[in-house]
Design a protein around this nucleic acid. Sequence first.
DNA 1: TATCAAATGTAGCTTTAGCTACACTTCTGC
DNA 2: GCAGAAGTGTAGCTAAAGCTACATTTGATA
Lengths: 155, 155
Amino acid sequence: MQPKAKKKAAELAGELPAELTQARRFGKTRSAQSGALLEDYVELIDDLLTSNGEARPTDVARRLGVSHATAIKTIARLKRAGLATGRPYRGVFLTQEGQKLAARVRMRHRLVVDILLALGVPAEAAEADAEGIEHHVSDATLRAFAQFLESRVPS
Amino acid sequence: MQPKAKKKAAELAGELPAELTQARRFGKTRSAQSGALLEDYVELIDDLLTSNGEARPTDVARRLGVSHATAIKTIARLKRAGLATGRPYRGVFLTQEGQKLAARVRMRHRLVVDILLALGVPAEAAEADAEGIEHHVSDATLRAFAQFLESRVPS
DNA sequence: TATCAAATGTAGCTTTAGCTACACTTCTGC
DNA sequence: GCAGAAGTGTAGCTAAAGCTACATTTGATA
């Protein structure tokens, strides 16, 4: 145990609530991680279904830059989660729930890219960064983004 | 193998580059994930060192909402990565490199929060979302953020 | 100073997401 | 209509990040 004169004072002054708030924030960020991957898969599968009429594990794997085995395993998780369906060797499809999620994700992605562009971020970087950012944008923030864009570019 | 009339056409039309670009983007997002945790730890340890004069694994664990064992294991990774030092039972400190990283991370965090606030995101949500967003903001985007804030609020 | 609670560290388990290597279908083209 | 290539699926490994349970060290205090 280290000496801790200042620590005790901080505790008495009410450090605990701050700790809890921060912990809650971090915890949320962490658990968002697992959902992010599924969202990426759902979005991409929806893309492939729209543009190619089918979504094959190998295409998914290529697009995401992972091995086909990894893609297949994650697609299995999607099915377990009720987001995707499909029989062996027959391609992947989205359930109603999966399609709803895809739509939400796509809308959010669009909004994040637009915000970045509006802020003067170069197109290339905007697309790239949006991929990482979008999974961490809460509904409140999303609403603010939409409102900002509307007010700026009534278009 | 599924039938794929359209697929072939798309390939001939040059789908491959698109695939590679997207794969590169996703890969970057994924590998950013591992760095994000270390960044959080470094930032927090720097916080604790500044405000308390010491950074103890238990405090880190409490703030991050994980068990002390998890914190200790990750701190060991920090040490292996050359970001932290410290002898057993003696608290954690940052190396020069760790301090440099902490400064960068803190600056970036500040900038992201400020941008969110400038866009009209409620303070609570801005702080929370920034935690997740900041790890995915490239230098180009960061520069754009800074420039936008300067132009908007010459303060 | 000897004890004991709190902090620290270690061991071993789980899940997720990745990989390679191997096995099995399916489709294409001859 | 068959052979082989391409796609799909399975098995088994790794590393990260989390946990609980147990062991060890430290510092406060009686």
